[in-house]
């Protein structure tokens, strides 16, 4: 059987909030080491990959690999019933389960709620993501990244990200004119979560749809920092670490000049 007990249900709530607007139905692959989720948006522009290792759970048992086809809207309804400090237990049968049980326990043990979510059949390509050497890595405050994406959305549909030397520039333009926001590599680091790190091998200049970046920033509550990895002619990777026990990575295909 598959059984996973998470001490802080709030983490699962945050994970779901960060994927449900991008991917409606997702395949949750469970094996002895971790739960992984991979899914694409309906227009096949973005892909999300989530990894949550067994050590994130207070108790984790997975006798045989099992894949759970989750409708994220249905799962979200259940997790809305959970407080952040509720314990969440996921349970499913080993072979081709058609449902998954979720049990919510209050911290003081005085309230228990249990739910059964019907699993859905998902016919989607599982994609292999190759190891890539990126030309630039930018690590910054996740809140600052969210702010930049939100602010630039007022000016245009797309953002041009340019990395050169020790700067990263985010630009957007439209009918109202042009907006540029430049962040410079932090000279001194007082607080790591507020500093900007630009690690550049080669200059890059790429353009991406802001609509998707704004969806990615739903993961902001998961981590104080975010890392952007860029290479010319390759998808952007936006990564939020889930403590030391996993990550959410978003991949976004660039827009190219016709």
């Amino acid at each position: 059987m598959f059984e996973a007990k998470l001490q802080q249900g709030g983490l699962l709530k945050k994970i779901l909030e960060s994927v449900k607007d991008l991917v409606v139905d997702g395949l949750w692959d469970c094996d002895g080491a971790a739960i992984t989720l991979q899914g694409m948006d309906s227009s096949h522009v973005a892909l999300v990959e989530m990894l949550l290792r067994a050590e994130a759970f207070e108790h984790y048992r997975c006798d045989r690999n099992v894949t759970l086809g989750m409708n994220h809207n249905h799962l979200s309804k259940i997790l809305k019933c959970a407080n952040n400090d509720d314990i969440v237990i996921l349970k499913a049968a080993d072979q081709n389960p058609d449902s998954c049980s979720l049990i919510l326990e209050s911290k003081n043990g005085e309230k228990t709620s249990d739910f059964v979510v019907s699993l859905v059949r998902i016919d989607t390509d599982q994609l292999g993501i190759p190891e890539t050497e990126y030309s630039a890595h930018v690590k910054m405050s996740s809140g600052e990244f969210q702010r930049i994406c939100r602010d630039l959305s007022q000016f245009g549909d797309a953002v041009q990200i340019t990395c050169s030397k020790q700067d990263v520039k985010f630009s957007s333009s439209g009918e109202t004119g042009k907006a540029n926001i430049t962040l410079t590599h932090s000279a001194t680091v007082d607080k790591e979560e507020e500093s900007v790190t630009v690690d550049l091998k080669e200059p890059v200049d790429l353009t991406f749809a802001l609509r998707f970046l704004n969806l990615f920033t739903k993961a902001t509550p998961i981590s104080d920092t975010v890392t952007l990895s860029l290479s010319q002619e390759a998808p952007l990777v936006v990564e939020y670490k889930i403590g030391d026990s996993g990550h959410i990575r978003y991949f976004l295909a660039p827009k190219i000049q016709e």
Partner: peptide, 14 residues
């Protein structure tokens, strides 16, 4: 005009 690329064109099917 910039054309949006398809994410699947960068990855291989498993």
């Amino acid at each position: 005009f910039r054309q949006q690329q398809d994410i699947r064109s960068f990855f291989t099917r498993k």
